[in-house]
Simulated scan of single mutants.
Amino acid sequence: MSKAQRWPRRMVSGAAKVFSLGAVSAVSATLFGLVSARQFGMRYETLPLLPSGHAPLRVLHIGDMHLVAGDQAKINFVRGLAATRPDLVINIGDNPGGVNAVDDVLDALEPLLEFPGVFVPGSNDFFGPHRANPLRYLRAPSTTDGAEKQHEKIDARTMFEAFTAHGTWHQLCNQSTTVQLRDGRKVHVAGTHDAHMQADKWPGFAITQDSQPLLKIAVTHAPYRRVLDAAVADGADIVIAGHTHGGQVALPAYGALVANCDLPTGLAAGLFTWRSAGRSALVNVTAGIGASPAVPLRTFCPPEAVVIDLVSADQARAY
């Protein structure tokens, strides 16, 4: 008689119940994650960064759409963000979720291209997703090594040219510029190529005749420490980033399991202060609108776009 046959009936029954409960829990968690990934929402921040006497300045911070072709619900959400009436749109990249999604990305962003804006690229603007073990996402940061061979290429050039065709958006790929807002005010903005691709080089802020710019904004796709250090040391008032998806898979009372960069998981999303070279600045990391196509679920870190109202210190008391 085999060992399995000698087990008491109640032991076999108990093991079957444990297995069944585990299977049900796994299915429930997956369904919860799939549903949560579609709960598009907004986060609002009010930050006293402007000099006294200046009118508020609204920044719309978006990114990590990972838009799959035909996803009309996500397209509608992004298009609807124009209703926030931003003074400046900042797009931190990873727009398409596949090689055939560029037209849908342009459809989603079309209303926002009417506003002044800047953008930086992420690796998923250049390469489509490929099949992978979802558990790899929880073990360690992803890598772009060999992406040229493993992934189909996305027509990033056409997409980026469409972004700038209106003359309102500026690409910041290891570059800096001065953006003039609709009311005539100017902000200095500098951004990097994707640090996750090891393609970043901090450009410094543009040197212009504006000796005291209204604001210095740094933009990067992936908030690696070296980029935050360089931007803050160079005088940035705020750094805008994404890439992390807020951990994408988080646990209640614990938070993100991974940050997919060299930040601690506790900084995988939200607003925090970063210090470098005796200076300090705020950093806002968006949890992003989408999810990794290889792991299309989110738990306890819902997708988001972020509205940042920049005000003077005296105005902040009224908010």
Rank of each mutant, 00 (worst) to 15 (best):
L282C: 01
A4H: 04
A231Q: 02
R317D: 03
P252M: 03
V35I: 14
F163N: 02
L109W: 14
T208P: 12
F272G: 02
V187M: 08
V258E: 10
Y44Q: 13
I240T: 01
V105K: 08
A250W: 03
Y254I: 15
P51E: 10
Q212S: 14
Q315T: 12
T192M: 06
L257D: 00
H188G: 04
A16M: 13
V102P: 00
H196L: 01
W202R: 09
A291L: 00
E110G: 08
R275F: 08
C261M: 03
T208C: 11
P302R: 09
G255H: 05
A23H: 07
L88D: 00
A294S: 14
T286N: 02
A195E: 08
L310Q: 06
K17D: 05
D155K: 03
A4C: 03
G246T: 07
R225D: 15
V24S: 05
Q248E: 07
D262P: 09
A23M: 11
V99A: 14
L67M: 00
V99K: 14
S276Q: 05
L88G: 00
V295T: 12
G246D: 06
L172R: 04
D234F: 05
T144N: 12
G204K: 05
R9F: 09
G270A: 04
G167N: 06
V311I: 07
R79L: 02
T158K: 15
P96L: 13
A277N: 14
V105T: 05
D200L: 02
P223A: 11
G53E: 12
A15R: 10
T168V: 07
L34C: 03
A83L: 07
L257Y: 00
L31C: 08
R6G: 00
P213F: 08
Q212L: 05
R10W: 15
A277K: 12
P116E: 06
A313I: 11
V68Y: 00
F205M: 13
G93D: 05
V285S: 00
R6K: 13
A218T: 07
G70M: 08
V232C: 03
D71P: 00
L112S: 04
D104W: 12
P213H: 09
D64T: 05
G53T: 12
A73T: 12
A108V: 12
A241T: 10
T143A: 11
A162L: 03
V78H: 02
R9G: 01
H188M: 11
G97R: 12
F127M: 10
V311E: 10
G246I: 06
V27K: 05
H193F: 12
K17S: 09
Q212H: 14
V306F: 03
L214H: 09
D237S: 14
A73K: 15
A162S: 15
A55T: 14
W274D: 01
R279S: 10
I308L: 15
D125L: 06
S2I: 01
P302W: 09
D194G: 07
Q180D: 04
V27T: 11
N76T: 12
C173M: 08
H245V: 00
A16R: 15
L228F: 01
